[in-house]
Write a protein that binds this DNA or RNA. Sequence first.
DNA 1: CACTCGTGGTG
DNA 2: TCACCAAGAGT
Length: 352
Amino acid sequence: MALAENLTPAKPDPAGLLAWYDRHRRRLPWRAGPGERADPYRVWLSEIMLQQTTVVAAGPYFLKFLDRFPDVRALAAAPLDDVLRLWAGLGYYARARNLHACAKAVVERHGGMFPDSEDALLDLPGIGAYTAAAISAIAFDRRATVVDGNVERVVTRLYAIEDELPRAKAIIKKYAEPLTPSNRPGDFAQAMMDLGATICTPKKPACTLCPWIDPCEARKLGLQETFPRKAAKAERPSRTGVAFFVRRADGAVLLRRRPEKGLLGGMVELPGSEWATKFDGDAAMLKAPLKASWCSKGSVTHVFTHFALELRVFAAAVPITTAAPAGCWWSDEVDEEALPNVMRKAVEAGRA
DNA sequence: CACTCGTGGTG
DNA sequence: TCACCAAGAGT
């Protein structure tokens, strides 16, 4: 046996990974138990939420959505604003719009049943290469190869792939594809991602616990932590803006809705200035929604993916007879609105 | 292809 | 503290 291993270089064995998965399978809110049939609606809902989002962050939102919208028809029939409100705080708000559009498309184009092929899934809003493969494999147990951040790390280490991300994506797929077994492809997809999430981690991977330690080229070189190679990162600029917290005598707060496209698209915000790289404080104060005696409430900071924001908050109290300016409205329950987290911070500062 | 698009946890 | 990163998609 030892002789055979010496003569034949170790190759990553799908069955070995599946055996590891069976021993270490994690219980996740959206994951079917052993032997249970997966619900495509739940698989899809979880995969959308998990795009660039941690399991811990997505979990409560998944349960909220499942409770409010038990199936794809319920979600498709809901007003978009209900979906945005429930999504508020999770980030990447285009996902919420696409989620709603996708639910409607599944009802209208597929009679309320999710398609099982990658090609048909790719035609739906919010579903890209990764999610199409994930739904096909996990919900329908069809042979499809998922490549997410975990798989990229596992595969680039297994084969010591020197090409830099994101250019290496196609190469990684070529290496990952032949690993995918015909037997239990859905479990295999989840096993690859679990391996990356729990063993083959970005820093200090637990190689001694890895079922694929033998065939791992990066480990043989002692360079496992240096994969995947990545292109140099651009530095993050900072922007500054002003937000106005206006409270009417009865407690109502002045709000407005952001444009549907772009940053925080379709979400609710405090009225305010532009967020400028070159900030002009006097010009920003001219953007006040109405005439009032403004009181500085300091500033809140928030870090977005590609810039950091300092938002200077000013507050004022106005009489109950005050009319809402154009494009704004009074909200009695600001906490129930579709406020992104940066605006929750601003509201909190305005109240203080 | 390069850029946009949130937020929170972690080392 | 801060850079990195997390089951990526759309343009």
